[in-house]
Nucleic acid binder design. Structure first.
Lengths: 194, 194, 194, 194
DNA sequence: GATGAATGAGGTTTCATTCAT
DNA sequence: AATGAATGAAACCTCATTCAT
């Protein structure tokens, strides 16, 4: 079972109230802008939308990359929270898996375009995985194990396979958002015992 | 049936021999560089690797985007040629489909990283589709129709569904190259009649 | 004879004990950092090494320049103290001069790189001279006068000449630290009566 | 005898006429601005004075540091040219040495403030020496050897000693320009046989 | 047609200084 | 008095594109 990290959105230290608020504003601005305009959003634009000086932005995140990473973490945190509060209750693993993947898809749809900023860091990709992403992936793997154990999916299907399909799912949303439920149906069919 | 465009890599008019050669050099350089370094390759670098002046490069392609688009076309042309010379002979549509998708995957693996440059224009995505991409997609749709007709895949599966899954396939290669054959297996299983 | 300023490191008024301690911490941090990394040290770094908030730093010194100036003063104070406690006893002016210059060199070696921060304000330079620097220069001039009077150095040598050579001495240490004693030898030879 | 490098101001390749002209304009602008305002001159300002786009400036010199280095080289080239055309004729080594040092001083006076930009790279300093600087230093060393051989300066004086004094000379000019001839007199006295 | 020098808007990042807590 | 978060001007540098040679 994955380590039950408390999902605190990654703020490393205790911050003054206003600092915490600014951090959140920046992260939201970043998510919003990336979501709608893809990768080529400038730091100045993020700062402007967050109504924060550019210096403040850099105080919170030493680098553009760091900021993107943090926004990314935030999204994983959101999904994890959902999973732990809702899916965890569901007894049938395949149903829980479908719920989780659906949630992932919904977040992806909402933040469409965000993914293109972090291709190297998207769910299921290779490359160094951040804390919350690792946790989320661990949950998926575990769910797969349970589903296999209960005989709901084919015995040769591994957790890695499901991560791989998940990765495809988010990409499909980025490219042809409307069709993602068809994708999900077909993939789950491909996994299930006949 | 798809319009049977001759696959001549998109050169619009008769060019002097050396001009044609330069065009090809540029396109290859672009493909190579994008493949290995992803999106942030400059026009100067492309020109340098192509051993061509930057001015020459711009004579052939008015814009960076146009150049990327052309390189993209080249790749689709390559796949189309393969399809028309090899797959078209194969009588069983599902086998032909698997062959085609495998070829697509192989090209994708070879040019790994290229996709990240043209997210907006990859196979199966929404957005304006170029000539050769449209042709290729049409072939996939047609193959799907034949497979459905022959009862090899489920009756409710549409050509669009397969395009959608194909789009996921290329994305998976970009993100976790090693697993693409598992993806293909599961996907085809999901499509097939039980 | 130079005005006998008490060498109290320039703290203008009675400060609370902890304030005084903070002032000293900042000054030491500044000296240390400038010494080892030259000019491009930020105020934040100074504050961090001093274990003091940046605000506190600015309470003590209204400006970076002011802080540098104060650190500079501190160094002159150190040399003056040495001079007044040790050299002043020495009866032969040339020997006293050599001792003083040696001390200056030693401090310069210890704080190598510091000089590059205060080029405009180094010993013997033009530009507005601070209190303690003025005092130190006055001592050098006076020592020169005594040496000339006692016939140890050439009659046409002025105090200004020696200041000028001293200025060269500190520069040489900054640029080729190892050779400063050769410089001193040759310089004193050039001053002395044949 | 130092290798007789032709003094071509360091332009590495054949350039188009206009490029060569721009290169020179930039270098002159840089020298002028650094001379009058010291180190904190921005690249934009240099470009503006040179009446050249900022991009052009960076095409010629990939880095601010590289540009400073090139301007520095130019100055050494200037001095070397003088040395080779004028001093080399003079039979008495000490007189030639004084002429050379005087020239160095004059250039330093003209470009006052320039030195502060390149402390790490000034004549006689430690650190990686550029081609022309190395050549110039070699000339100084050779001159010293000849002067020692002819008995004009003390037998224990080395070329290194003279480099060291030269380094002091340029620093003195930076700090108290007016007095440099006194410095030169005294130092040469210190070197000479009694 | 080909070349590569020139352009300059715009990107990321730093840092001295101010001010709310 | 002390703190450290916030500020934003300005620095350096990149790169798609234009144009003189």
């Amino acid at each position: 079972m994955p380590t039950s990290t408390p999902v605190n959105e990654g703020a490393p230290r205790r911050l003054r109230a206003d600092a915490e608020r600014n951090r959140a504003r920046v992260l939201n601005a970043a998510r919003e802008l990336f979501a709608e305009r893809g990768a080529h959003v400038s730091m100045d634009e993020v700062a402007r939308l967050a109504e924060v000086g550019i210096g403040t932005l850099y105080r919170h995140f030493p680098t553009k990359e760091a900021m993107v990473e943090a926004a990314s973490q935030q999204r994983y945190g959101e999904i994890l929270t959902y999973y732990r509060t809702v899916c965890a209750e569901v007894p049938e693993p395949v149903r829980a898996l479908r719920m989780l993947l659906t949630r992932i898809a919904e977040v992806e749809v909402r933040d469409r375009g965000f993914a293109s900023v972090v291709v190297e860091g998207t769910l299921g990709s290779a490359g160094p995985r951040s804390d919350l992403r690792a946790d989320l992936e661990a949950e998926i793997v575990e769910l797969t194990d349970r589903a296999r154990a209960s005989g709901d999916i084919r015995p040769e299907v591994t957790g890695t396979d499901v991560l791989c399909l998940t990765s495809g799912l988010t990409a499909v949303i980025q490219r042809r958002a409307g069709d993602w439920d068809r994708y999900l149906d077909i993939m789950l069919l491909g996994l299930s015992t006949p």
